[in-house]
């Protein structure tokens, strides 16, 4: 008997084909709702560190698309973990797996329903992992902070290694490369 997960999750892949539109490049790979099916998928696909720069993996709850425009993401934000290229071999895959295990295992205690999904962006210089939460309103500051602390804990990040919480609407309207950080821990 397989071990059921609390939620059904969908893995997406973004292929950076310049000849196609952004939406055409975003592909839904498959969904799973048991631990065993997660592992058979994970063991079957390329690791994030093996993807060509410009590509993304996204793992989101079924029914939520990995984009700002999705109704479940519009009011939300993301905890951003940045990893230098030199960390790609050592840390990227471990961090991405740990974030996925946190999500499918519902490890965010009372706040798990606020977690929508996560994306890993493999880029030439700096890879980024973003964990997307549903509501970035000030009233949910303690919820989003608790989620951020859990991420730092599970990833064994020191105080020196900061992660930043950004509202999607700030990320969308950012000038230059850096979006406004609402929290940093």
């Amino acid at each position: 008997i397989k071990h059921p997960l609390h939620n059904t999750w969908v893995l997406w892949y973004y292929d950076n084909d310049r000849k196609k539109s952004w939406a055409e490049n975003l592909k839904e790979i498959t969904s799973f709702s048991t631990v065993e099916d997660f592992w058979s998928l994970y063991n079957h696909i390329k690791a994030a560190s093996e993807l060509k720069p410009g590509s993304d993996y996204s793992l989101f709850k079924k029914g939520i698309r990995p984009m700002w425009e999705d109704d479940a993401n519009k009011q939300g934000g993301r905890w951003l973990i940045s990893l230098e290229k030199r960390q790609r071999e050592i840390d990227l895959d471990n961090c991405w797996l740990e974030i996925m295990l946190c999500m499918i295992g519902e490890s965010f205690e009372g706040n798990a329903d606020e977690v929508n999904g996560a994306t890993v962006n493999v880029r030439p210089k700096v890879d980024k992992i973003g964990l997307w939460t549903a509501d970035a309103d000030k009233s949910k500051a303690d919820v989003n902070m608790a989620i951020g602390r859990k991420i730092k804990d599970r990833l064994n990040l020191s105080n020196r290694q900061q992660i930043h919480f950004q509202l999607h609407r700030d990320t969308q309207t950012k000038s230059g490369s850096a979006a406004k950080n609402t929290f940093s821990i």
Partner: peptide, 18 residues
């Protein structure tokens, strides 16, 4: 309702089960 939660160790243990 009750939430189905898995510790990291349980998930890692299940990785190797056939």
């Amino acid at each position: 309702g009750t939430r189905i939660v898995y510790e990291r160790s349980t998930l890692m243990h299940l990785r190797n089960s056939p």
